[in-house]
Nucleic acid binder design. Structure first.
Lengths: 131, 131
DNA sequence: CTAGTTGCAAAGAGTTTGCATGGCG
DNA sequence: CGCCATGCAAACTCTTTGCAACTAG
């Protein structure tokens, strides 16, 4: 819950919104914004704050220790599945009817109750498949 | 590809096979086996070797930097989806027909080609749901 | 015997934290 | 002006690596 709008936070927010739904590492962000005069610790502190506010999602690939951040209003999609493209790194939000159909199918066959908010499906998206 | 069967490797393998499909951290393993006279570096080196041999899977929850290891022959299930129970931490291997049906359904609706080997579905398993 | 393994300690990478300084409101 | 946020450097955690000593085959 930030109280002041510092120039560092402003720079971070503007950078993030210009790269919505992309996977960015803290290093990547700090490096790009180094010209704006923001330190790596300020980046981390602001990312944590944004995460707590629900404006950002932390993501990581299975089995990897690398963590990325995504500017995505996650309060808006508590009930949808996420698809992550391995080529471009973009996250797609699966609309609820489709998600529910998929989840229901699985519940029926394997008696496994999927947690939609924790699950991410990896693959290749429509756009990247074309190329 | 290990050449010698040292007492350390023996202890590690016996511990792992006693906890097949469970998620274990390197620390956890090293701590439990400290009585057997195995150092943390030997644990890491052996885990890496086992991973390369395909006898172990590295897993991590989305958004977390914590990595766990699972004694699971992953060469056997290159073509099946994995279900991970958030309660007991066990991994279930979804049989291929079901997995393919799910993947096909998604490909049709959203034109997204799922990568089965990279995807893990999180939720609660049959057993844990009962309790 | 001799090459693969181990233990230790040092080196790394990524992230967090304490504290004095600086700036938003 | 007062409190919040920043920068810096130190601390931390997890993992990897170099090297000499040890040991399985």
């Amino acid at each position: 819950m930030p109280k002041y709008m510092t120039k560092q936070r402003k720079a971070l927010l503007s950078f993030l919104s210009a790269h919505a739904d992309e996977e960015l590492s803290a290093r990547q962000i700090a490096q790009t914004l180094s010209g704006e005069g923001i330190s790596i610790s300020a980046v981390y502190r602001n990312l944590s704050a944004l995460e707590q506010e629900g404006k950002i999602r932390r993501v990581s690939k299975n089995g990897s220790r690398e963590v990325f951040y995504q500017y995505t209003d996650c309060t808006a999609c508590k009930n949808c599945l996420h698809l992550s493209c391995e080529k471009c790194g973009r996250t797609y939000h699966m609309n609820m009817p489709d998600a529910d159909r998929l989840v229901a199918a699985l519940a029926q066959n394997d008696e496994f109750a999927i947690d939609k908010s924790a699950t991410v499906l990896y693959g290749v998206c429509k756009e990247c498949k074309k190329q």
